[in-house]
Design a protein around this nucleic acid. Structure first.
Lengths: 224, 224
DNA sequence: TTCGGCCGTCAAGAACGCGTCAAAGGTGTC
DNA sequence: GACACCTTTGACGCGTTCTTGACGGCCGAA
C-alpha cells in the first residue's frame, strides 16, 4: 500500500484529501502544521507528501528542506498563491509539483499517480497457478514443472478468458464470441478441439481434468 | 550536458523555449510534430521532453505513449487547454507534469529543474548481457566479444523495447506502435526484417536464436 | 432398451505466419 | 553529382496452426 502524508492546517481540506486518497487505495496520514509534519514523516516514512504551504508555524520551504534532508519521497505542494516566484521557490527548494488552490481533485489524484509512478515502478507479474503449472498472463508465459510450455494464439485467448473468470462458468457462446468473434455461435467443435489441446498441455491427467472443467450443455469453467 | 527535446508546432514558442533553455545550459533539440518528435527522441535520447499538445499530426497521448514505450525521461506537457480531463489524460498517459499556456518561463524552468533533479542522480548505466554481447542502453553501445557493433536507429528502438521488457512477450502490434508509430498495425514484414537483422548482429547462431525469440502469431520476446 | 444429444478424439487439407533473399526508394555526405 | 547507408517493399518456400469433417462413447430421456 502506498503511504501518503497530507499536511494541511485547514481541517476541511485535509479531510477531503484524506477521504479521496483513501478511496483510491492510499494509506493516509495527516498533519496540521510543520512540526507535526516532520515528526509524522519520520514516523511513517511516506512514499509521497502532499504539502500545503502557509502553515501556521513554519515557512513552506523550511518544511520541504526538512523533509529533503533525509527523504526522496515526492513532495506535491498545494498553495493558494499563484505567483510564479512562490512556485519557483518551492520547486527549487525540493518540491516535485506545485498545484494552486482551488484545485480539481481529479487532477490532483492524477498528479499523485504521476509522482508515485516514477518512484515506485514495481514490475509485478500476476501469476496464476494451476497445479504444477504456472501461467503468467502479462508475460504470456506458461511453465510446467519449470519447463516452458508453448501455446498457440488461439489457445492463449481461450485460456485467458477462462482464467480471467476464476471459478465462474463461461458459456460456450461467450467463449466463441471472445475468441473467434461475434459471428461464431454454434461451432462448439472448436471448443472441444482447443479445450482438449489445453488440457493436454496443462493438466496432469488430460483425460481427468481437475482445473479445466466441462459443464455439459453449458460451457467451461476454470477451477483454481 | 542535459539534453532537452522541445516539441512544438508554433515556431515562436519553440524558439523562445530553445533560447531560454540554451541560456540555462541545456542542450536543446526541437521537433515540430509528433512523428519528428519520436524520431528525434530516438536519435538524441533526451533527458527531458517538453511536449506541446495539439500537434498537427498526432494526438498528444499517442506521442506520450510512443515515448514512454522505451524512454523514462520526464515529459513536461504544455497545453492551451486548462480542462482537468485533459490534464488527467496526459498525466495518466505517462506525462510527469502539465503546464497550461500562457506560462511563466521562470516557472517552467523551475519545473524543468525539478524534473531533471529527480532523474539525474538516479540514472545508472544498465548493461544488459546477451550471451557474448553486452548492450548499454543509456550509452547506446553494443559490444560483441569486445568489438563494437553498429546498430541503425530503427534497430535500436526495436531492441530497446524488447530489452525493457525482459522475459515478457511484446505483441507485434505494440512493437510496431512503439517503433514506427500508431498508424502501423499490420506491417509485420518490418518486424521480420529487423528482427532478422538484430539476430544477425547479436545472436551467436542467428538461425537458432536463444535470446530474441519469436512467438508465432503473437509477437517477440527477449530472454535474458 | 433404444434413441438423440453432447462431448472427446483423431485425421485430413487449407490457410496463415515466419525467415529469407533481393531490390527499389530515400536521405545525408563527400 | 556520385556514393553509401538505411528504410521500405515485394516475393517465395516451408513449417505450424487453424479449420473442417467424421467417428465412437457416455448419459439422460422416451
Amino acid at each position: 500500500m502506498i503511504k501518503v502524508l497530507v499536511v494541511d492546517d485547514e481541517p476541511q481540506i485535509a479531510r477531503a484529501l484524506r477521504i479521496n486518497l483513501a478511496a483510491h487505495g492510499y494509506e493516509v496520514t495527516t498533519a496540521a502544521d510543520g512540526a507535526q509534519a516532520l515528526r509524522a514523516a519520520a514516523a511513517v516514512v511516506p512514499d509521497l507528501v502532499v504539502l500545503d504551504l502557509g502553515l501556521p508555524d513554519m515557512d513552506g520551504s523550511e518544511v520541504i528542506e526538512g523533509l529533503r534532508g533525509w527523504s526522496k519521497a515526492p513532495i506535491l505542494v498545494l498553495s493558494g498563491r499563484a505567483a510564479s516566484a512562490e512556485k519557483i521557490a518551492a520547486l527549487d527548494a525540493g518540491a516535485d509539483d506545485y498545484v494552486t488552490k482551488p484545485f480539481d481533485i481529479g487532477e490532483l489524484l492524477a498528479r499523485v499517480r504521476a509522482a508515485t509512478r516514477r518512484s515506485g515502478p514495481g514490475s509485478d507479474s500476476p501469476v496464476t497457478a494451476i497445479g504444477p503449472v504456472t501461467v503468467d498472463l502479462a508475460a504470456r508465459e506458461v511453465r510446467k514443472d519449470g519447463d516452458e510450455v508453448r501455446l498457440t494464439p488461439t489457445e492463449w485467448q481461450l485460456l485467458e478468458v477462462l482464467l480471467r473468470n476464476p471459478g465462474k462458468l463461461v458459456s460456450q457462446r461467450e467463449l466463441l464470441h471472445r475468441v473467434w468473434g461475434p459471428n461464431y455461435d454454434r461451432e462448439t467443435n472448436y471448443l472441444r478441439q482447443y479445450m482438449a489441446q489445453l488440457r493436454r498441455k496443462l493438466e496432469a491427467d488430460p483425460a481427468r481434468p481437475v482445473h479445466l472443467l466441462t459443464e455439459p450443455g453449458m460451457g467451461y469453467r476454470f477451477r483454481p
